[in-house]
Computed example of a mutant assay.
Amino acid sequence: MTMAATAREIVLLPGLDGTGDLFDRLAAGLAEEFTVKVVRYPNDPSLGYAGYAELVRNVIGRREVFLLGESFSGPVAVRVAAQLGSQIKGLVLAATFLKNPWPSWLIRWASHAEPDATPKKIRDAILMGSYGDDELRNKVDQIVRSLSRPVRTARLRAIAEVDVRDDFAKLSCPILVLHGRKDWLVSMTAMQKAVCNKGGARIVAFSAAHMLLQTCADEAAKEIRAFAKSKTLWEAQYED
Rank of each mutant, 00 (worst) to 15 (best):
P42A: 05
G129Q: 01
V186I: 15
V92P: 02
Y52H: 11
P75I: 04
E239A: 14
L98Y: 02
V76T: 15
E9S: 00
A220I: 01
Y238S: 15
V56E: 15
A209P: 00
E64G: 03
R8S: 11
V65L: 03
R137N: 00
P101R: 09
R57V: 08
D167N: 13
T232H: 03
V65H: 05
A169G: 12
G129P: 01
I224K: 01
A228R: 06
A95R: 07
E161A: 01
A27K: 06
A77W: 03
V151A: 09
S172P: 02
S86T: 05
Y238P: 00
T35H: 08
K193W: 01
V144W: 10
A77P: 02
G18V: 11
P115M: 15
D124E: 10
V140C: 10
V59G: 03
A95Q: 04
A221E: 13
G69R: 02
G51S: 08
H179G: 01
S130C: 02
L156C: 06
D183T: 08
I10N: 05
M211N: 10
R25E: 13
G180K: 12
L84G: 02
G61A: 05
T153Y: 09
M1P: 00
P103V: 02
K37S: 09
L98Q: 13
F23K: 04
R202A: 12
T232S: 12
K222N: 09
Y52L: 09
A236K: 12
L98W: 04
G51M: 10
K182Q: 14
E235D: 15
A160F: 06
Y238Q: 15
L93I: 15
A160V: 01
V65E: 10
L171S: 03
A4E: 14
G74Q: 07
V65F: 04
S130F: 01
A50V: 04
K121D: 09
N138W: 02
G15S: 08
P45Q: 08
V186T: 14
A125I: 01
E54T: 13
A201V: 03
K120W: 07
V140T: 10
A82V: 05
I60C: 05
A160M: 09
A160S: 12
A236N: 03
K182G: 00
L156P: 04
Y131L: 09
M211Y: 05
W109D: 08
R202Q: 12
L26M: 07
Q237R: 12
G18D: 06
A154N: 06
K37G: 06
E114N: 14
L84R: 10
